[in-house]
Amino acid sequence: MNASVVDIKDLWVSLNHDFILREVNLSIQQGTFLGLIGPNGGGKTTLLHVILGLVKPDRGQVRVFGHPPGHHKNKGIIGYVPQRAFADLSFPVSVFDVVLMGRYSKIGLWHKATAEDRRRVLEKLEAVEIIHLRDRPIGHLSGGEQQRVFIARALACDPQMLLLDEPTSGVDTKAQGTFYQLLGKLKEVLSLTIVLVSHDIGVIPYHTDEIACLNQKLHHHGKCTEVLDGKVLSKVYGCEVEMLVHGKIPHRVIGEHSD
């Protein structure tokens, strides 16, 4: 039996006087690759921010590795890859510098990076297969390569859990496929728990162990095979959802329209 690393009970969060999350109950087991899907504005990023301790809940109980979110004992055991748009990509730093930032809290105030820190950074760059780009300015990389840099930075403090927010936005379709393969590999090698937020319902189920559908409320949480039900998705997205099923013979499943 795996231990649960995230435990959320009856979570309510409001932004600007409106509830963006309502009565959310979610438990994430150690070693799970969870895909968190739902429409824009459905509260996916807010839920990640709650887990990270960046947003305070209005109500409910949240435990991350047994502690309240943002607890100092949780520092360094959660790696976070935010939406790419937030970082200033003309920033004058190299790939190596960016990944080293992930170790700053371990290095500590007033201290300089040691040879061991540098070795760890190179190890992470190797793990995400971009060690050859280490001296390049961050702005000179493609979207897919930048995403790998940010994953390496999140891994730099040797976390137990990795949270990714829309990691494939701005990444071309071909690179997306290899990106998910890489995540799967990292999960196995580093025995990580992964939570990945995406609005891309077409891709997620093929790469994750479990899926949770979020649109203010948590509509479904379970194995990927269970969730591929048009009724659940229609409820989450608030409209009819067509599903494209990849397989030997690709086919489209069209939900029944109400009228």
Binding site: L52, G53, L54, H72, K75, G76, I78, Y80, P82, F86, A87, D88, F91, V93, D97, V98, M101, G102, Y104, S105, K106, I107, L109, A113, R153, A154, C157
Partner: peptide, 19 residues
Amino acid sequence: KELLFLSFDEEVAQVSGVA
């Protein structure tokens, strides 16, 4: 180094444990 990190990406700096 802390100022560099928070100038680049304040949110991630905070999450990773930088004061």
